[in-house]
Design a protein around this nucleic acid. Sequence first.
RNA 1: GUGGGAUUGGCGCAGUUGGCUAGCGCGUCAGGUUGUGGCCCUGAAGGUCGUGGGUUCGAGCCCCAUAUCUCACCCCA
Length: 459
Amino acid sequence: MSNQLITPKTLSGFMELLPSEQMQFEKIRAVLEETYRLYGFYPLDTPVLESSDVLLAKAGGETEKQIYRFQKGDNDLTMRFDLTVPLAKYVAKNAGELAFPFRRYQIGKVYRGERAQRGRFREFYQSDIDIIGDGSLSIRNDAEMPSIIYTIFTKLGLDDFVIRINNRKILTGFYAMLGLSDRAAEIMRIVDKTDKIGREKVADELRELGVSEEQIGKILDLMSLKGTNSELLASLRAIPSENEQFCEGVDELEQVIAGIAAYGVPEKNYSIDLSIARGLDYYTGTVYETTLCRYPEIGSVCSGGRYDNLAGYYTNRKLPGVGISIGLTRLFFILSDRSCVSTAFTSPADLLVVPMTDDPEPAFAAGAAFRSGGIKTQVYLESGKLKSKLNYANRTGIPFVLFIGEDELASGKYTLKNMDTGEQISAEAEELIRVIAGYVRKKESVSVLTADRAEPAEG
RNA sequence: GUGGGAUUGGCGCAGUUGGCUAGCGCGUCAGGUUGUGGCCCUGAAGGUCGUGGGUUCGAGCCCCAUAUCUCACCCCA
């Protein structure tokens, strides 16, 4: 009979969590969501499936190979591979109904049919915010994005991160000045890999592309400019250029950097980095990439940028936007892998009501009373030994158990046991609610992450 | 798509140059303790060693094939 069983398995590249891990994940997710709301973004939920012609309007090359696409009847369907393209469609479709600038956040699963790898998933959460303008959108929005990221990461308990910022106009303008406009996109893709493969290999790849030694030298010199943000801006200013795009890029970058400072983001958490370019080619100006300093090898956990014409595939209306996307699944994976996520307080409830008599009704009444007092309450409904009931509270981490037996029914008071301390008190519901609420509040005030104290595990 | 590693009770692993009844830790269940958990002690259940062939007196171990997982490359969150 056992040979007829089907092995319970989860597909490679699909993350599935145990209950306490899921609680941790949800806590992080809640921080993101709260923060987005705090900054005045609308929630948005678009379908996981879209018509292929809609989703693949801009795709091509590598992207297309990694897409989940299939036929159902006469429909050609594709699973979304990011949240930005569906947003572009949504805004184009509903432009008449929306108030611009349109600010939305979306936390949702996306799908990429690439080979799974450490920290790389086929199904993963992206957590996006974007601001879309009608006709135009102030560059100041480009400065707001990093400030939101800063707020979120700080709330999570991370402080050792850098939001790296560049502007693609600087790169495209610069490459144009070198007479390399025709290969700008490829050059950016290569340059973007510097962190990973190093200067030498970047030079090799550029050489293969047919870029001359002199040009390579200049490209490498530009991207390896070092210094503080103001020093870097000064260096850029010092580059003699008549190229309009280049100058515009430097202007924009300067405004964005000034804006981020004005938003109160500490200097150590953001910096100009002329080597980041982003692979996706819909970015037209500001680009961001965020790395955790303790874990540089995992790459970017959050990236995005400015796109002037993403909705251009769907409408003639000009709808420029700027957005940023947190790779929530990857962020969670790496943080819990490094034991940085606090395992404290992942229980689904604050109170477990345990009936000690055959009559469950007093327990139901107690459950209702504590819930209306704001206490997350479960009533234990199974028969069995007290030992296994208490053990259930242990396993799930429920911090309080309420006993309702002969004694309690006779006295009209409940017995409340604190599972951490073992301490028991006897009182009426109202008082016990205060005790539980106070205890729970204290426990919940602990930061979601313990990253600051954790040593990065070497592997 | 290209390379490397792995697959042994629910989970994590050990298993020597091929040799008796395949072990360990965690977990589960029962008891020690019938309204008081975690710790401890005792005991029990649970395995066709991924699958299919082959070599051998004998295979968890060697050979071939295959599946799945995993790490890395490409690309990306």
